[in-house]
Computed example of a mutant assay.
Amino acid sequence: MAAGDCLPFLAMVLTQVGYAGMNIISKLAMDSGMNPFVLVAYRQIFATVALVPFSYFLERKTRPRMTLPILFQIFLSSIFGATVNQITYFIGLKNSTPTIACALSNLLPAVTFLLAVPFGLENVGIKSKAGQSKVLGTILCVGGAMLLSFYHGHSINIGESSIHWKYAENTGKVQSSNDTNFILGPILLIASSVSWAGWFIIQAKMSESYPAPYTTSALLCLMASIQCGIIGVCVEHDASAWSLSPGIRAVTCLYAGIVCSALAFCLISWCIQRKGPLYVSVFSPLLLVIVTILSWTLLQEKLYIGTVVGSVLIVLGLYAVLWGKNKEMMNPRNKIAVAEKEEKQEAKEDLELQLAVQ
Rank of each mutant, 00 (worst) to 15 (best):
residue 306 G to T: 00
residue 144 G to H: 01
residue 44 Q to H: 13
residue 20 A to C: 01
residue 167 Y to C: 03
residue 229 G to I: 05
residue 11 A to S: 11
residue 210 Y to M: 06
residue 63 R to W: 05
residue 328 E to A: 15
residue 351 L to A: 14
residue 14 L to W: 06
residue 356 A to N: 12
residue 355 L to W: 11
residue 53 P to S: 03
residue 318 L to I: 00
residue 333 R to W: 10
residue 277 P to W: 02
residue 280 V to K: 12
residue 70 I to A: 05
residue 10 L to I: 12
residue 291 V to K: 12
residue 342 E to K: 14
residue 308 V to M: 08
residue 46 F to A: 12
residue 151 Y to V: 14
residue 86 Q to K: 02
residue 48 T to K: 05
residue 196 W to T: 02
residue 312 V to A: 04
residue 115 L to K: 10
residue 59 E to I: 01
residue 129 K to W: 10
residue 152 H to E: 11
residue 145 A to R: 03
residue 69 P to Y: 06
residue 201 I to V: 02
residue 227 Q to N: 05
residue 136 L to M: 14
residue 334 N to P: 04
residue 20 A to E: 00
residue 268 I to H: 00
residue 46 F to Q: 05
residue 164 H to Y: 11
residue 197 A to T: 06
residue 216 T to R: 03
residue 230 I to V: 15
residue 287 L to H: 05
residue 39 L to N: 09
residue 130 A to Q: 13
residue 8 P to C: 13
residue 253 C to D: 02
residue 307 T to M: 15
residue 69 P to C: 02
residue 246 P to R: 07
residue 321 V to R: 02
residue 354 Q to L: 15
residue 130 A to K: 14
residue 187 I to V: 13
residue 150 F to D: 03
residue 119 F to S: 15
residue 271 C to E: 10
residue 135 V to R: 04
residue 276 G to Y: 01
residue 130 A to E: 13
residue 10 L to E: 04
residue 290 I to D: 00
residue 296 W to N: 02
residue 7 L to E: 07
residue 53 P to V: 00
